[in-house]
Design a protein around this nucleic acid. Structure first.
Lengths: 354, 354
DNA sequence: GTGAAAGCGCTAACAC
DNA sequence: GTGTTAGCGCTTTCAC
């Protein structure tokens, strides 16, 4: 490491390199970008000078001058600890990489205002496009940013008040089929756990359940619906109460993986095994200690197709706003109820173990 | 939406706003940045003009001129579908947001060359700092970028050939305790599944296991170690073979969550319940259909502490490279072996269900 | 308070 | 092939 390289604060510029190599600025530019032909000897002198100084091109300056793209897309998303979102992010990251783009992952916030602010910040940074898992609320504010030239694709939920590309699930059909499964098994008192109806997806899923009742000419009792179950913990607590009722439901329908996991935990804790249908599959659902049915879909495709759509826009393709609807399917999950043999050697709770 | 706003290609600049408002460029700058005082009437005229034109400040241009920071950090990471990485990313995203920074998430690649390339791209973009979950291989190449002024903090693994901040787990102690648990239960033939030793973490964990044997004066048979178990699927296949041996191990130690999950699946499929210790906790480990022990730790803190360290560097704090070692603990997971009662109403496999 | 001029680091256009 | 000049969109002088 040579002492010249320690600039701490001021990075060497093309001009510095040009001076050191005794050539013009433009020659350095040519060498650095490696497109136009440069005399070999000159080129190597430039390379050497750049190396010695620790020159690193300033990408933003190049973009500014040339008017080229930042080769960056933004993703607005909630919580990466939720595997639904993490899978979307992984898919988007893969597609971005395949296109040689960097990905800025930002928080979509709690409401439409937060979201708009995040979008505007990314627009100031001149991202080439935006993938948004929208919060609830009106998204008309984003129209302006789209008109200004930042294409956007919405994931999981269509934007409200905005005509834009989206990739969504067939929530209605999935929920209808899932609830139908329980109804066809003879259950009519089905406990339904959903997150807030502020999420349009939840409304669609609930509508699907209602339709399953209607399909069979059965009455739907709205009091079966438990609202605002946002976390597994909340779901488990609500389940505790429900299971203590005099006539608890004989089966359960959970609106997403969080409520599903919470319900599973509660049922297990109470040593009950009422049939359960859960919208969203999740890791290790196959090893749950009881059978269950999940409404599954291609989570990765949700992100990947959205990103592909966005890149079509970025490449300048012109087409009417498109909504891709991903199908769902019912999948059996969980283990059967027969126990594994007692190994006799199972480890016992041990001191120092939580 | 007024027609002027549709520029498609050329975004309005401060100069455009200044012209429209009939003021100087500088006045617009003052209004947009809202720091210096401007005549109220002028200001509102500028606001209006900016609004009408759909003006959006060009952040990169401001950074270029002012020499201010890009308020961006980079995260180099592998696969967000792995909850270990996703949790780190979530933590880093939270800390970045708390500091008002944007986060570029990039792929750390398969080897040191990929990684260096990714780092250099982010340096060209002038990120203020980098968080890296390093690939295997030598990282000396990154020294230059650090010297050039981009601070880096390494997560999960210390960089090889580079003296930099890092946040790591106490792999040795954790594995030692975990293997010790099995040995103290009387198991000596323990099957050990690990990913490639190219990952130094795997070496440390294996050393911990060896130490557990040595602690008790027991001989360690290297043939117990199954290498290159990179995925749950591979782990399950290896387990199939192992369980078919004449004298299979009486217990298993898995070097990470992937091999642990694969081993669990295989043991369940074979209706066996040999004790299992797994480095890394994972979602729903509490509902696994049998007991197990995980070597757990604060996964979120791994990312959050790393990001905090990085921001200290970004703020210009000067201190010797620091390595934070996070402790691990043994945690009981899985369900006990008693079965839930047969509900009699469990849903049956149904047509159209996979 | 406001404006004119210069320049951040780079590339496009045009000369040589 | 190479160098010179201008200017991307903005902020920083520094006059007024």
């Amino acid at each position: 490491m040579n002492a010249d390289s320690h600039h701490q604060g001021r990075r060497p510029t093309m001009t510095d390199v040009a001076q050191r190599a005794g050539v013009s600025l433009k020659t350095v530019s040519r060498v650095v970008n490696g497109v136009q032909s440069v005399d070999a000897q000159m080129a190597s002198r430039v390379q050497e000078a750049a190396e010695e100084l620790g020159y690193r091109p300033n990408f933003a300056a190049a973009v500014l001058r040339s008017g080229s793209s930042t080769a960056t897309i933004g993703l607005l998303i909630k919580d990466l600890r939720n595997e639904f979102y993490a899978t979307i992010a992984a898919a988007v990251a893969d597609v971005a990489r395949a296109n040689g783009f960097q990905l800025i992952t930002s928080y979509s916030g709690e409401n439409a205002d937060d979201e708009l602010e995040a979008v505007q910040d990314l627009c100031r940074r001149r991202v080439d496009g935006l993938l948004i898992v929208p919060t609830s609320g009106d998204h008309a504010g984003l129209q302006k940013e789209m008109d200004l030239g930042t294409p956007m694709v919405f994931l999981d939920r269509r934007p409200e008040g905005l005509d834009a590309d989206a990739v969504v699930l067939d929530n209605f059909a999935g929920a209808r089929a899932g609830a139908g499964l329980l109804l066809d098994e003879g259950h009519t008192r089905i406990g339904i756990l959903i997150d807030t109806l502020k999420m349009p997806t939840m409304g669609q899923r609930l509508d699907g359940v209602r339709q399953a009742y209607a399909d069979r000419g059965l009455p739907f009792d709205e009091s079966q619906v438990v609202h605002n179950v946002a976390t597994p913990e909340k779901a488990a607590r609500r389940m505790d109460a429900i299971l203590a009722e005099e006539q608890p439901p004989t089966a359960f329908f959970c609106g997403n993986n969080r409520s599903g996991v919470g319900a599973l935990r509660a049922l297990w804790a109470h040593r009950r095994a009422e049939p359960l249908v859960c919208f969203d599959d999740f890791h290790l659902s196959d090893l749950m200690p009881r059978p269950l049915t999940v409404i599954s879909y291609d989570n990765y495709a949700l992100g990947a197709l959205g990103a592909e759509l966005l890149f079509r826009r970025i490449r300048g393709e012109d087409f009417d706003p498109e909504t891709v609807v991903l199908p769902t399917q019912l999948s059996r999950r969980g283990t059967s109820t027969d126990c594994p043999p007692d190994p006799g050697t199972a480890s016992q709770p041990t001191e120092g173990i939580q």
